[in-house]
Each structure stands twice: as structure tokens, then as C-alpha cells.
Write a protein that binds this DNA or RNA. Structure first.
Lengths: 178, 178
DNA sequence: TTTTCCATGTAACTCGTTACATGATTTC
DNA sequence: GAAATCATGTAACGAGTTACATGGAAAA
């Protein structure tokens, strides 16, 4: 669910530290960076192919015993340069904070108040659960950057929880006022 | 940048109040709902075609003088039912809060600290400007729902600003500590 | 007179997802 | 003997974007 540029940044960034193969990269992302990014397996493989075609990484086939052969990627100089350029660019830019589901909020009035409240309560439960997951065993040994990134997601999630609590309070006040 | 379901919800919701043509709908969204949703013209027209094909809306051609003919859409009963179903569903669900640009945060360490700080300061300026835009002349006469939706975006933007301020403070402390 | 507004679209493009395929190997 | 792991992919699908096309009317 990342645009290609951010995928490239992610993969190049990981390859800068360790040359490794697709499976390994994907696994690392799922295990350690899932709080920050979400990269599907086929998308990751395709991105690596493309990075290769663009000359940003090199490949070597590797085989251990008769396990499936690996394609081990390592970053090139062009890749390093690109990584830095992407990093600078992306660090400056902002993401759109409008969620797709906010459209529904706009039509809240069309639903009986009690039902709207119930729906938002479900939303709140989900978010609180997410927040709990984010806060327990967050990755620590991965450097300042990753901590900041996770912290960012946590901050936004907390804000969403707080907003939901406030909104629910206001809506409940409307019920009582009848 | 909305998935089809949310586009459908948006268009059906507007058509519930007023039957109107594509141009008008798009304009209304741009003018009044841009803080919440972003729907491109070709995407809107395509969505209306599709809603029509699914029997959720009806069309009639209309012509005034010799201005371009209009396709005026009105919601069907199936459309109303669908609207309510989508509304209930979407109100309960949560959006993913991970931004694409958070990947860059993860690699902050790869940049000289001063440069990272400068980049995030730019980010902060942009967000503050967004926040100002959001807060001035926000739509009022559009009902509780829209106010809530805008308020939600505002809350998330404020949280992002606050997070950036905190992060910058911590990073500056690191510079001073050298 | 040039620009903007009205009103609809098409075409070309990139993107990303899901589901499936393969085949050996280690673990339960 | 079944299931999960390792490792790579393909195919089919549908979404959404940008840029362009059209053509009259009103506004600057």
C-alpha cells in the first residue's frame, strides 16, 4: 500500500545495511516494520526487479544445498544516491491525513443517533486495540529513526482515540438532551 | 483517492438530498467537502455511470437552451438501501493511519542530524499552513456530520503538528548534547 | 478577445491486490 | 503424514490519475 517511491526508499534503505534476498527483506519488514509500513510479497519482488532494471541494485543468484535458489540484492552507488535523494524528499513532504472513512462521518445525521453512537463505539474499540498492540513490544534496537516512526503512528492513533471519545461524549449529550 | 465504496457512499449521500448532475456534484464536493474528501472529475463521472449500471441511481437527460446537456441523477430505492448499508459499515470501520512518508522517518539516522531537522521543520511549516486553512471558514451550515468529519481531520492534523514539535525538540537536544 | 465557466467524457498509464503455482525441506 | 517454512514468481483484476478533447456561453 505504499507508492513505488516509498517502496524503493524502504528497500534501498534496508539494502544499504545488509545485502539480502527478497524473502528475507519481506520478512524483516513484516516482523519489524509492520507498524510503519505494509509491503506485500509480490509487490516487494516486483519492486526489486524494477530497482534492478533501474540499476539501483545488483543481483547475484545464490544456492545453498538444494533449497530454492535466492536472488541476493546489493545496493549500487546509483542506488545509494537515489536513496539519499528519496530520503530528503520524503522527509520534507507530508501525507494526506484525510481518511476514506471520514466520508461516512459526514452523513452521520442520516442514521438514528443511537445507531451512530454504537457504530462509533465499535470504531473506538478497534482503535484502542490497535493502540495496545502498537505500544506493547515495540521494536527498540532498530535505531532512532524507527522509534520516531513508530512514535508517529502511536501519536496519530492516540489522537484518533481521543477524538472518538470526545465525539461520543458530544453525541451522548444530544441523546440525553431529548 | 477514495475507494469505490466510499465514492459510492459520498455520491449516494448527496443524491439523497438533491438529485443533480455530475458537474454539480463534483463542484459541491470540491467547494464544501474538500476538507474531508477528494474526488477527481473523471472518477466522479465514472462512478456515476457505475452506480447507474448497478441500478442505484436513475438518469434523465436535461437541456437548458443550448448549453451542454446534463445527465441528472436521482437515487433509487435500491440506492437508498445501499447508502444506509455503506454508511453503517463505514462508520464502524477504521482507516489505516500509517502514512507513506513514515518510511522516511525510519531512516532518519542516515542523514546528518542538522539536515534531518531542517527537513522536518519544512514538514511542520506545511502542516501548520494546512491546519490554518482547515480552521478558517470551515463549513458550518452543512450539518453535524460534516462538522464532525472536519473536526476529525483537524484533530489528526493537530496531533501531527504536536508530534513534529516534540520530535524536533528531541532532535535539537541531541545536537546540543554534542 | 482571451479567459473562464459549463458539462461531459476518453485514452494511456501506473499502481497494487489477491489468488494461485511450484517444489523441496524441516517441523510436528 | 500433514503442515508450515523457504523462495520465487505469474495472472487476472480493478482502481485511480493525468492529460487531452469538445464546444458553446458568459465574463473580463
Amino acid at each position: 500500500m505504499l507508492p513505488y517511491e516509498q517502496r524503493a526508499l524502504l528497500l534501498l534503505g534496508l539494502l544499504k545495511t545488509q545485502h539480502s534476498h527478497g524473502y528475507q527483506l519481506h520478512e524483516f519488514i513484516e516482523r519489524n516494520l509492520s507498524r510503519v509500513a505494509d509491503l506485500k510479497k509480490p509487490t516487494a519482488y516486483a519492486a526489486l526487479d524494477r530497482l534492478c532494471a533501474e540499476g539501483l541494485v545488483d543481483v547475484q543468484q545464490e544456492q545453498h544445498g538444494n533449497r530454492p535458489p535466492r536472488k541476493v540484492y546489493s545496493i549500487t552507488e546509483a542506488g545509494s544516491a537515489r536513496f539519499l535523494a528519496l530520503l530528503r524528499e520524503s522527509l520534507r513532504a507530508v501525507d494526506d491525513l484525510r481518511g476514506a472513512r471520514d466520508v461516512a462521518l459526514s452523513f452521520l445525521d442520516e442514521l438514528p443517533l443511537a445507531e451512530a453512537i454504537a457504530a462509533l463505539e465499535e470504531r473506538l474499540v478497534t482503535r484502542r486495540a490497535e493502540l495496545a498492540t502498537l505500544e506493547e513490544h515495540a521494536p527498540r534496537h532498530l535505531g532512532l529513526g524507527v522509534s520516531l516512526a513508530v512514535d508517529h503512528v502511536v501519536a496519530l492513533t492516540r489522537a484518533d482515540v481521543a477524538w472518538l471519545e470526545g465525539a461520543l461524549e458530544r453525541l451522548r449529550a444530544r441523546v440525553d438532551a431529548r
